[in-house]
Design a protein around this nucleic acid. Sequence first.
DNA 1: CGTATATACCTTGACAGGCGAGGTATATAC
DNA 2: GTATATACCTCGCCTGTCAAGGTATATACG
Lengths: 109, 109
Amino acid sequence: MSITSDLIRGHTETIILASLMHGDSYGYQINKEILRKTDNQFELKEATLYSAFRRLEQANLILSYWGNENVGARRRYYAITDAGKKAYMQNLKEWEETKNIINSLIILD
Amino acid sequence: MSITSDLIRGHTETIILASLMHGDSYGYQINKEILRKTDNQFELKEATLYSAFRRLEQANLILSYWGNENVGARRRYYAITDAGKKAYMQNLKEWEETKNIINSLIILD
DNA sequence: CGTATATACCTTGACAGGCGAGGTATATAC
DNA sequence: GTATATACCTCGCCTGTCAAGGTATATACG
């Protein structure tokens, strides 16, 4: 896990929103997807993931419902709301701007 | 709650180290330089700046000395150490990796 | 002289997100 | 029966950020 928690801080919610832009999903799956997408370089810690879910739902950026699995462990599915989609777009824009700012500050001339 | 602060979190020290790679400087000047480089889009809050100085000096990544101004307010100058240069290089590398990871996670296919 | 502004440094305490460490439950495989 | 994978959750600590205060020097203006 080369990525440090302070560098990821502030991106957790956007990462979750981005994942849900592809369709409804649940915690475990979202994290596995993150692992896959980053070639096992990164995953969210469970406590981080679930506290982010709570914040996002509180802010009405996502909503949740229990899946109707009749076998295996229960799953709580999450769906992104319209407000969530807007927030995602906004966060993406901010990321592009922040990226430029950081680049200009830490890369030497 | 400003989004920017969480996105910049973890980069503060690298920003300071990068600034000192150009030569010794002092708090006020470093912050003005950041403002200039980002076209007034960003600056470190004073409390953040000075607490970062303290951490960096504690870790022997920078050292400080009082300037000998005989006019105006006193200045505490900072210089980057060899360990600081190494840390800067390492942080820069981590930034490039983190950038890719975040991009791959938040930008939709 | 009083006030405003710029330069320059510093401290305290609150806040919020990340996460280690624990817990619960279902199902398969050996 | 025990190990592993799936799947969810909570508690409490840690750490970086920052609002809100403070101190001191120098110049400009009326």
